[in-house]
Design a protein around this nucleic acid. Sequence first.
DNA 1: GCCGACCGTCTTTTT
DNA 2: GACGGTCGGC
Length: 764
Amino acid sequence: MKIVEENKSERLKKNDYLSTLNEPQREAVLYGNGPLMIIAGAGSGKTRVLTYRIAHLMENGVDPFRILSLTFTNKASGEMRHRIEGAVGTEARNIWMGTFHSVFAKILRIEARFLGYTSDFSIYDTDDSKSLLRSIIKEFNLDDKIYKANVVYNRISGAKNRLVSADDYINNAVIQADDEAAKMKEIGRIYKTYATRCFQANAMDFDDLLFNTNVLFRDFPDVLYKYQHKFQHVMVDEFQDTNVSQYLITRKLSAVHRNIVVVGDDAQSIYAFRGANIENILNFSKDFPDVQTIKLEQNYRSTGTIVSAANSVIARNKAQLEKHTFTANDEGALIDVIKAGSDNEEGRLVASAILEEKMQKALRNENFAILYRTNAQSRSFEEALRKLGIKYRIIGGQSFYQRKEIKDLLGYLRFTVNQRDEEAFKRIINLPKRGIGDTTVARITVTASENNVPIWEVVANIGNYATGRTIAPIEQFGTLIKSFKIMLEDGKDAYEVASHIAKVSGILRELYEDKTVEGLSRYENVQELLNGIKEFVDNEENEDKTLSAFLQSVSLLTNADEPDDNEDHDRVTMMTIHSAKGLEFRNVFIVGLEEDLFPSQMMLESRQDLEEERRLFYVAITRAEKKLSFSYAESRYQWGRLKMCEPSRFLLEVDPKFLNISNALRRDSEQINSPMSFVRNLGPRKATEPKPVTAATAHTPTGDFIPSDTHDLAEGDKVEHMKFGFGTVLKMEVNGTDRKATVKFDSVGEKTLLLSFAKLRIIK
DNA sequence: GCCGACCGTCTTTTT
DNA sequence: GACGGTCGGC
């Protein structure tokens, strides 16, 4: 991957770098004190402007400790840091720079005692939060089919991002009416208990990091005063993605010096689902009436075709600020449209297009990116690229830090640092198996709440609270944790403690004994985590080498931040469009342009927001420098079903004069040749088809299928007139390896398919 | 208490 | 296809 506009010799003298900028860019870099809003179109050199502006401030004697630079994602923040270090040298390390979450986590650690937390507080990730919610829902005896952890989590998260506390939530008539209408009137109570439990666990979830910062600044004016005066300059990148909670923090922090620079592009706002609010841009002018606005409208990145195509797409949105992006670059090639019969074929066509283009133009793997709407789409491209021997890497998807074995070890580390961490406790108490089952854990929890003491108090002194068989393993566990704690108190560094814990807890041993392929890879992952900790300790930039400091640094890392094996950068990059923001590639493939997939059906149903999806498409298009390709598949194997697809309305919305559809036409007459299975839920799908399937006539050598059983179809099997999710199987026959099915799809009518495998299950 | 088998649910995107 | 939860046998 190429870092945006990377400039290898960026350590420049002022006059040098000023001469490389256009007029509005220079104006933004040199702008003096007071509020400034930069509206920066895609590819307009925004990061460069921010970098030079910081360099300029430092040249003029501003102490880096007094500059606060906030971004939205870890990737953007890492890149900014890298570029600024390139421009101003190691002093850049002293700038307060990072994501909103990481910077305010740091401040909250320092000021934790004001809010009743210790500075070792844990950070609950989404899994922890949902698991805690599940327990609460269970304890309340609520129906978990109605109160789904996911939904409840999103409600609570939304409330926190609007700074609505649990009490506010319960006392707000509108919200209560909403919940009542959704038949979930207990959410307020769940929220309240959830907040209490997090507090008791000395833990904050992602949203708390912002919410509690607001509380801190609201209730402790002295603390606010300190930071207001500390930060002489505040900068916010990707301003269009900030939510109310984030905006209020930055507004307060810049209220004294009023040197606030926000940079954004309303056309690239793609995080409304997290409460991002374009109105922040409008509010900004209200809160800072003397704001100066500078627009960066020249695109330096892409060809004329790509810029025009992007503009033709975004022009369909109604809500937009006025802005005219243009480019002086060449027109460049048309956008290729690739039409595939199936998801697998889409993978093959894209992979071979990459190979061809690489050969013809002597390009490298790293010049290419494949962008998709959902992480699950990566599979077919991985397979195809592997077959052609093209190296690739995937950003996102199941994160390293989400893997079970990693979370297990991190659970031990977290619990060693913070014994009130309930979720960590639940994770490790019986891991590896030490004979402490659910019943015992429940008994411990009850004892703790009956005696009104923390769980750890009961575990550490189990002899005082219980007798009997189960106390021995609990005592052992308590002793184990106590011995780890002693290491912390002795001032051992993160690596010493963590590697000791990995060995002594038995986690490593258990994985080592697992000789399966997965077991081996899990063992390696744990080793990799330990290596990461070692690097953390060895890195001279990190002053604090304690385990607590490591956990801090790691708990806000997510999918994009895999430990970097940095051996081979020449790889094709695959990622979601969300992850791609801020990056650029010579050649970009936007894949899976099918109705209901992109734009996402869910987004349209739940938020009715086609415009945000369109902005997402805009972001994807504008990642490309020289060459852009679109692809879609006519059928997609998804959720164990074959789904027939229409080309996406987005694809059709692009002004056709920018499209090269010859490839697509060429494929028109070919037959669909895709794997297909009728695995599960073969019968009616919930809302759409209430009547059960009874009339399926399916014959196997042994007779009729048994209800609720799974069969691999074998030689001679026949299936006729069977309904499934998307239509009816008129006839399916298996002759040797040749599996042929005639299927009538609801959407596209009759098709004959060749199947690479077929499984069948009938639900009575 | 443990384990394997089975069932249901969920797949938007990120911190 | 992946995961968490549940159930029944040991």
